[in-house]
Design a protein around this nucleic acid. Sequence first.
DNA 1: ACCTGAACACCGTTCAAGT
DNA 2: ACCTGAACACCGTTCAAGT
Lengths: 239, 239
Amino acid sequence: MQPRPARGERRVEALSRARIVQAAIALLDDGGIEALTFRALAAGLATGPGAIYHHVANKDELLSAAASDLLRTAIDGAAADGSDGRGVREVMSRVFITVTEHPWVGRHLAAAPWQPAVLQLLDRVGSELTALGVPQTQQLDAASVLVFHLLGVAAQRGAASQLHEMTEGRAAFIAEATSHAQDLDPGQYPFLEQVGPQLAAHDDEQQFNAGVDIILAGIAAGSGTTPDRPAPDFERRSR
Amino acid sequence: MQPRPARGERRVEALSRARIVQAAIALLDDGGIEALTFRALAAGLATGPGAIYHHVANKDELLSAAASDLLRTAIDGAAADGSDGRGVREVMSRVFITVTEHPWVGRHLAAAPWQPAVLQLLDRVGSELTALGVPQTQQLDAASVLVFHLLGVAAQRGAASQLHEMTEGRAAFIAEATSHAQDLDPGQYPFLEQVGPQLAAHDDEQQFNAGVDIILAGIAAGSGTTPDRPAPDFERRSR
DNA sequence: ACCTGAACACCGTTCAAGT
DNA sequence: ACCTGAACACCGTTCAAGT
């Protein structure tokens, strides 16, 4: 029989869902999503792979739990601030940082966008928008586009870490893609070639925040007296 | 020896990259991403799994090629129209439809956002914005937020098809999530409960287009001279 | 009730052997 | 050069057997 260690001198901590999730996060943080294996996890926890299934239903649930852990602290850590757009900006920014520091979270977010943590984010963003005075009829669309923006960026972050594990691989990638395009057909990506210098110079976080700003500006523009909008007027630039 | 069928009466078509991609799309369209297997693909092509590797490097490349096939026709099929926002709207809308009709494309887009087809979309959107008169300094940010929006929606579409394979599973899901939240803590998702009726009633495509409209409005607002609107003008943070 | 770890059913990918 | 398909190295997951 297994002697229960007395005097609280437990050599082996009891298996628990919390410990499993913690170990999973550790594996994911170095090694990415393909480093999370039930075998590796079990080895780290000094047990067999089957034991884990007594605490987690399957790998998807484990991934969601791990991602949720980090996302919740990011979301809850943002101070509510309904006076201007700062509340929304802070939640968005905090989640972006989480997704950047843990690219596997981004990957899982993009792979399973309906997990509770995303709902929580959508709810939080929506509440902020309500406090900002966005009309009721537009709150859902407005909150959705913000969350979709985040999901898209999350996907990019999650994949970026895979590309040769370079943090700054994007510029090199663009260069490669552009040059590859030139092999096939010079000028296939005219716009990207045009903004090439900006591409090489820009910062991902800055670009993300710029996107949030654009969306917020659009929400603010739509919040005014609503016409039967055919299209936002771009016309004023010509002339 | 294998008799080469004369008179062009080939019983078995020669293996080719095009045929492989075509067969892959067929497998993906019914059965989703987990139906695409080198064994199943080989069986359908009446050959062994190894033969495929003579024409495609690996599964990722095969998936990208299949997705690219559909995305290119969606992107190229959109008529350029620089006069108002219609050009951008049409490309975005066409890709949305593709991603809706082939959810596996959405999944792969979210999983591999840097594939050439996405670059092509970014380039196309950027070109449209240039034609719209968006200032040079804002073109990249503007194009990016549109593409990120699309990637986020693509992720949602890709995952939605997995949830019990119901097209309208979203409402049920929200209801479930909300009720589940009530088990834990009534009012955990106050915003979602508030917009509940809109959630149940809304159409995904409509919501996507509304997001595009919001972003375009934000781009237009940033492009022109700032209107003196005091009320909902969230102060733009200077990076 | 919880743990163990061998075994099952499946993958993507490789490679000697054929043609 | 292209094909073949058995074999390899790995998965997630299950389950009889233990405690």
